[in-house]
Amino acid sequence: MAVLLVAELNGSSLATDLTAKTICAARQLGSVTALCASEGCEEAAEEAGRLDGVDKVLVASDGRYGHQLAEPTAELIVALSSEFEHIVGPASTSAQNILPRVAALLDVMMISDITAVIDDNTFERPIYAGNAIQTVQSIDHHKVITVRTASYDAVGEGTPAPVVAIEPVADPGSSSWVEDRVAASDRPELTSARAVVSGGRGVGSHDDFELIEKLADKLGAAVGASRAAVDSGFAPNDWQVGQTGKVVAPDLYVAIGISGAIQHLAGMKDSKIIVAINKDGEAPIFQVADYGLVADLFTAVPELIDKLD
């Protein structure tokens, strides 16, 4: 069976890690054709073609796809859909914006955020903030799926696949892009980092959040935050980890001044090693932590930074 894989693009460049992890799930379903839809994304298409498990790349390089708006991108995917039984993307904000729209246009149910492929029609996915895992079997002619990338390893490089340019389709014109507010950072990305250091409300202020960032830099880690820390303005929204933020599963997750609400745990409890630093020994975060330190973060974290030298 044929799979259309919606490659993740940041502007014109390939989000390699997210795409490579999604391929790991997609190739279990059949032969993978990757779709790169953006503006000036020919190079991204070549790169996608080099990922192991990709048999062909379709590239739709056109202004109307430059910001991955759902309306034109969904039309494009629907136009391509007759040749594919599965349409798969990462559970990123971009694909999760586009693919349910595609599913509705194809009159099929959306299968979001899968963590395992059982067979062509059957998948596992977490529900209730990860407190239960459901196995669902689709009876639809098309399966439109997003993949929880934290559950998969990235595929490596393989033989380059052929890249074929395709024509754009009509843009319904119901939306337009105004601006992106994206802060550039030299740190690893949250969803692909080997280690993540996250701060919560306990950190207390935007200025003190620097302490979290310092520890992260020491460990070569990405920086995360709880919702409370983001809501309080200590950290930007794209650092949020949890049910409504990003889902991560690094080798090391350090939670500092985070109580461990189920909605936060939903985004990090599959991490390999969890460290919690919290002054309240009763905090629920300790129930999932491999190593806990009951301490004031303002003394423990500077000491930790020192001792990592």
Partner: peptide, 22 residues
């Protein structure tokens, strides 16, 4: 359109240890 075959609890993490110093 989706048959729910079954619903299970996720694997529980085993309890870790509380350390006393950095």
């Amino acid at each position: 359109r989706l048959n729910i075959l079954h619903t299970v609890e996720p694997p529980a993490r085993k309890a870790g240890e509380i350390l006393s110093t950095v």
